[in-house]
Design a protein around this nucleic acid. Structure first.
Length: 501
RNA sequence: GGGGAGGUGGCCAAGUGGUAAGGCAGCGGCCUGCAAAGCCGCCAUUCGCCGGUUCGAAUCCGGUCCUCCCCUCCA
């Protein structure tokens, strides 16, 4: 079987190119995880969800993917935070990894093939630093620190387009005078009293920030692998330094394709700790259903910024609702049918081909979403066909669309993985909380209105409906009875959490 | 100061040479007691601005205005 060719935009070349696996049929992917010292926010989630879909898709079309995503569990920030909390740094990291896995799990992010931790990779890291010193790319200084010698690596700056002589060293941070070049960076940091440390040829210490990814990617994927990804803000210096380390140590190319995920913006600016404009995954999940969060992440191309706003999240909620209502309608139809019609091959091929084409082209999520929306619309259209159950052609097309939703969209986008009733209830619960709606009371009003309608007391029925509508509760009278949903009012607020209702 | 990305209808957002996907909102229609949902139709001669290349440009080139990201820890 011939695998389809995937095109990916490579940061190094600035172009979109076909990916040629180093090992036929296999792709090695390394993605930078997070430094675990506090709860992750929705910006981290975007990177995780993005690569979750990337890996799901690559596997779906037949690639054997080895997906590595690390946990940076020892670092200055972890030590600082642990000190503030009065607990052990490694304990804090351990706890935060558990929280991270829980948060990402709640978003339907699948576990990577390997999730290496820095503290479990010290031997490889020390060995790599030794190699770099041997090859003249690094030097130890008094005090037990080891720095990378950027001037020894001609390619330094090739990923980010930076030139050493143009960068502003020390602009905002004091330069360590033991460095040969202000841009030299730490490979190994000597331990201060009370800090976690490991023995090394340079004395007790711990790894610098960038070396762990060079070492761990090599351990699990070898010194040269296919794709390396991470958030856009890691391009420099993190990934630039990784290239210097890995290529310096191995003497050959490190990564074939560099993928960088755009940032999550709030009011046009990057979500960040310092601005205080960030929302933790936990907080957002309490207000927005996980499938809607995933949908939201898919509405923009992964390389572009995506705007975190109440409007966008409400829209995602509405779309996910629509997706599940259609799924329910399809399920109801087919579960009721004596002999299920075979999916119409033409219809299935049409949607599948376009869906795959969108994703094969640098993972164009919005284009893929457009195909999904067309499938939903087409299905709803066919579901309204007169004498549907005696219309073999329509049933065949619906079977194909159902197959497309469940066997193509579901495994790739990670949507529709939860029972539709549960998703719809989950969305309703969140919105009810947001708008202070008593669901039992709504049900009671509906019962009253049903009675009014049966008595053809339209005035009272409409008054009840209007009263609910004023509280964002919309009623839907169907042949099967009256159902309801909560519809958030138009825009205003910037983001969830800003306002409470 | 250097590097990078981007400015597409009221909003969100695809689209890197061939004559503007999709979604939301809005308008008309079908359906409905009336609605909602769903479906059908309409909705950018135009892609920040000014020039240029081309038979042809949102897409290429030059200039210009604006925004964001990186050059410090950042997903």
């Amino acid at each position: 079987m011939t695998l389809p060719t995937v095109h990916i935009h490579d940061t190094l070349t600035g172009r979109k190119s076909p990916v040629e696996p180093i090992r036929p049929g296999h792709l090695g992917l390394y993605v930078c995880g997070v430094t675990v010292y506090e709860l992750c926010h929705i910006g981290h989630a975007r990177v995780f969800v993005t690569f979750d879909v990337v890996v799901r898709f690559l596997r779906h079309v037949g690639y054997d993917v080895t997906f590595v995503r690390n946990h940076t569990d020892i670092d200055d920030k972890i030590i600082r935070r642990a000190a503030e909390l009065g607990k052990d740094a490694l304990t804090l990291a351990e706890e935060q990894i558990v929280e991270l896995d829980r948060d990402m799990g709640s978003l339907g992010v699948q576990a990577p093939t390997h999730a290496p931790r820095v503290t479990e990779s010290i031997d490889e890291i020390v060995a790599m630093v030794e190699t770099l010193i041997e090859r003249g790319h690094a030097y130890a200084v008094d005090g037990g620190d080891v720095f990378y010698r950027v001037d020894s690596f001609p390619g330094y700056g090739k990923l980010s387009g930076q030139r050493l002589d143009e960068m502003r060293a020390g602009e905002r941070v004091a330069v360590d005078e033991r460095k040969e070049n202000p841009f030299d960076f730490a490979l190994w940091k000597s331990a201060r009293p009370g800090e976690p440390s490991w023995d090394s040829p340079w004395g007790p210490g711990r790894p610098g920030w960038h070396i762990e990814c060079s070492a761990m990617s090599c351990t699990h994927l070898g010194p040269h692998f296919d794709v390396h990804g991470g958030g856009k803000d890691l391009t420099f210096p993190h990934h630039e330094n990784e290239i210097a380390q890995s290529e310096g140590a191995h003497g050959h190319a490190y990564v074939n394709t560099w993928m960088h995920v755009g940032l999550v913006n709030v009011d046009g600016v990057k979500m960040s700790k310092s601005l205080g404009n960030f929302w933790t995954v936990r907080d957002v999940v309490a207000q927005v259903h996980p499938e809607a969060i995933r949908w939201f992440m898919l509405t923009a191309h992964y390389r572009k910024p995506v705007g975190y706003s109440q409007v966008n999240l409400d829209l995602a909620h509405a779309q996910v609702e629509r997706l599940h209502r259609t799924r329910l309608a399809l399920s109801a139809l087919f579960e009721d049918l004596a002999d299920a019609p075979a999916p119409d091959p033409q219809t299935l091929a049409d949607f599948r081909d376009r869906f795959h084409a969108a994703l094969l082209d640098d993972f164009n999520f919005p284009a893929g979403l457009a195909v999904l929306l067309e499938a939903i619309r087409t299905a709803n259209d066919l579901l309204a066909t007169k004498k549907l159950r005696r219309n073999a052609a329509a049933l065949g097309r619906l079977a194909a669309l159902r197959h497309f939703l469940l066997e193509e969209v579901r495994p790739v986008f990670g949507l529709l993985e939860t029972e539709s009733e549960s998703v719809l209830a989950g969305i309703r619960d969140r919105l009810a909380t947001r708008f202070g709606i008593d669901q039992a009371e709504v049900e009671q009003r509906i019962i009253e209105r049903v009675a009014a309608r049966e008595a053809k007391d339209w005035e009272r029925a409409d008054a009840l409906r209007d009263a609910l509508l004023a509280r964002h509760v919309e009623l839907m009278d169907t042949p099967e009875g009256t159902t309801w949903r909560i519809v958030p009012p138009e825009p205003e607020s910037a983001a969830p959490g800003d306002v409470d209702g």
